[in-house]
C-alpha cells in the first residue's frame, strides 16, 4: 500500500523520466524479439557451430564460476573480517576487473600468461609445454578474471551482515573451525553466495573483450557464444538473433532465480 502511494505521488517530471528510462531498456529487447524467426529458432540454435559455441560457453562459464567461488570466498572472508594494513588497497585491486575495460584485462592476461614473453606464461611453456592462451583454459581464465569481483562483492556484503554470535555459539557447542564454517557461516551466507554465483556466472557467460584478446576466436575451441553472435551478425544474422535470444532467456532466468534478492517480490 505504502509503495503504491509513493509511486502515485511522484512529480510529473520524475514519472516521465522513469517511463522514458523504461522504454530505453525495453526497445532493444522488443527489437531483438521481432527479428527472431520463431519457426527456425530451434534448428538455428542446434546447428553445428552455434551448438558448439553454446556448449563451450556453458562449460567455460560454469568452470569460471567455480574458480571464482574457489578464490572469491576466501578473498571475501579476509576482506570482510581480517583487519590489516592495506586492506582497502587489496579490495580496490580485487574489484578492479569490474570497472576495467575487458580488453585491457585481456591484454594484461596476455602479458602475464602469454607463452612467449608472459610473466608466468613463458615459464609454464618452457617448463611444462603448457600454453594457456588460445585454449579453452584460457577462456576460463579470462572469464574468471572478470567474474571474480562480482562474487567477492556479493559474498563480502553477506559476510558483513551475518550476526557473528551464531558462529561463536557454534564454537561453544563444540564446532571446530571447519565445521563452524561449513555448517554455520556458509549456511547463513547462502543467499549472498547464490546471488554472487548468479551474477558471476552471468558475467562470465557474457564475457567478450578479455576472452577474444586472451583466448582468441577459434571456432569450436575458444569461440564462446558472445563471440559467435558478433561474427554471425555478418554472415548469418538469423543465427545471431537466435543465439542472442538464448542468452537473453538465460539471463532472465538468472534474474528470476534471484528475485528475492533483487526484485523483493517476497517478504
Amino acid at each position: 500500500m505504502t509503495k503504491r502511494k509513493a509511486i502515485s505521488r511522484a512529480p510529473w517530471f520524475v514519472g516521465v523520466g522513469a517511463v522514458l528510462g523504461f522504454i530505453y531498456i525495453c526497445v532493444p529487447l522488443v527489437g531483438l524479439l521481432r527479428k527472431i524467426s520463431w519457426s527456425s529458432l530451434v534448428s538455428q540454435v542446434s546447428s553445428g557451430p552455434t551448438r558448439d559455441a553454446l556448449s563451450l560457453s556453458l562449460v567455460t562459464s560454469i568452470s569460471a564460476t567455480v574458480v571464482s567461488v574457489f578464490f572469491g570466498l576466501p578473498l571475501a572472508w579476509v576482506l570482510a573480517r581480517v583487519r590489516f594494513r592495506g586492506s582497502s588497497l587489496v579490495r580496490a585491486l580485487v574489484m578492479l576487473p569490474m570497472v576495467l575495460p575487458p580488453v585491457v584485462g585481456g591484454v594484461a592476461l596476455l602479458a602475464a600468461y602469454g607463452k612467449s614473453s608472459g610473466l608466468v606464461g613463458a615459464l609454464l611453456f618452457d617448463s611444462f609445454g603448457l600454453q594457456l592462451t588460445f585454449s579453452p583454459i584460457g577462456v576460463v581464465i579470462a572469464e574468471a578474471f572478470v567474474a571474480l569481483p562480482f562474487l567477492v562483492m556479493a559474498v563480502e556484503g553477506g559476510l558483513r551482515a551475518i550476526d557473528s554470535r551464531y558462529e561463536e555459539l557454534a564454537s561453544t557447542m563444540g564446532a571446530n573451525e571447519v565445521k563452524k564454517f561449513y555448517l554455520v557461516t556458509l549456511r547463513l551466507l547462502r543467499p549472498s553466495l547464490v546471488a554472487g554465483i548468479a551474477v558471476a556466472w552471468a558475467r562470465a557467460l557474457g564475457e567478450f573483450g578479455a576472452t577474444i584478446t586472451f583466448a582468441g576466436n577459434i571456432v569450436g575451441r575458444t569461440q564462446t557464444t558472445p563471440l559467435a553472435v558478433y561474427l554471425l551478425l555478418e554472415s548469418d544474422p538469423q543465427a545471431a538473433y537466435a543465439l542472442s535470444f538464448v542468452l537473453l532467456v538465460i539471463c532472465i532466468g538468472v534474474l528470476v532465480s534471484m528475485r528475492d534478492k533483487w526484485l523483493g517480490s517476497r517478504r
Binding site: 554470535r165 561463536e168 555459539l169 564454537s171 561453544t172 557447542m173 563444540g174 564446532a175 571446530n176 563452524k180
Partner: peptide, 10 residues
C-alpha cells in the same frame, strides 16, 4: 571454545 564444554544462552 569448542574444547571447553561450555553452553551459552543469550
Amino acid at each position: 571454545a569448542n574444547k571447553r564444554g561450555v553452553a551459552m544462552v543469550f
